[in-house]
């Protein structure tokens, strides 16, 4: 570690200054002791506890007795598991611009490969009522990213980090993605110093359930 420490410092110094120098404050900056092997990590990682299986999730359940074949076909319900990450709307739709890029990238990929869309943005979702522990930590209005692909939601949790992750079952997609009406408005950022303008308000509309053909 010491060796690489001086390497770093020396190289930076060399880079910037062209001088074979070691800063006198090195010991201040770089503790040279090894990590204690006893300092191990916490075994519980919150946010991943809801996670059960890494593989995909479709669970179709025939809910009715199959005595009458026509009736069976009609009343067969498909109970699916939906996975989501949720946070306040400002975070999800206004601040995290890379989130918009990821969603459009995924949509493009689905279109290129003719894959049916399996992810949606739900503004103020009704299913949140089932999660009092989540909602009490949530600023409102809230926005959830919902998908039947739980593995992907785990990835999105890794990317977004400041989101809560859960899952639920629903009988139909309409039930799964139902939302309460709410008007969104985001204050303009105090100072916008980027050499480009923000993504347009409303970019998320193509991901709302009402806009997708299947719902």
């Amino acid at each position: 570690m010491l060796a690489s420490t001086s390497l770093n410092v020396g190289s930076l110094g060399g880079l910037v200054l062209n001088a074979p120098t070691h800063y006198s404050h090195k010991s201040l900056l770089f503790p040279a002791t090894k990590s204690l092997p006893l300092l191990t990590f916490p075994t519980k990682l919150s946010g991943t506890t809801a996670w059960k299986s890494a593989t995909s999730v479709k669970t179709a359940v025939a809910a009715v007795d199959s005595s009458d074949p026509t009736e069976k076909e009609q009343e067969q319900t498909e109970k699916k598991r939906y996975y989501f990450v949720v946070a306040n709307a400002k975070f999800m739709l206004d601040e995290e611009e890379h989130f918009k890029e990821l969603l459009f990238e995924r949509l493009r990929n689905y279109e290129e490969r003719n894959i049916e869309q399996d992810f949606w943005l739900v503004i103020e979702p009704k299913f949140l009522d089932k999660f009092p522990n989540t909602t009490k930590r949530l600023k409102r209005p809230a926005v959830a990213l919902v998908s039947t692909n739980g593995t992907w939601i785990t990835y999105m949790k890794l990317r977004l980090d400041r989101v809560l992750q859960e899952s639920y079952e629903a009988d139909s997609i309409e039930e799964a993605l139902a939302s309460n009406p709410v008007d969104l408005a985001f204050e303009k950022p105090e100072k916008w110093t980027a050499p480009y303008s923000k993504y347009e308000f409303g970019w998320w509309e193509s991901f709302l359930p009402s806009k997708t053909s299947k719902v």
């Binding site: 890494a54 493009r108 593995t151 785990t154 990835y155 890794l158």
Partner: peptide, 17 residues
């Protein structure tokens, strides 16, 4: 070792956007 995140990442990388 928490492998869930790695499995999720693997799915993303395999997709090969």
């Amino acid at each position: 070792l928490n492998m869930a995140e790695f499995e999720a990442l693997l799915q993303e990388f395999k997709t090969d956007f």
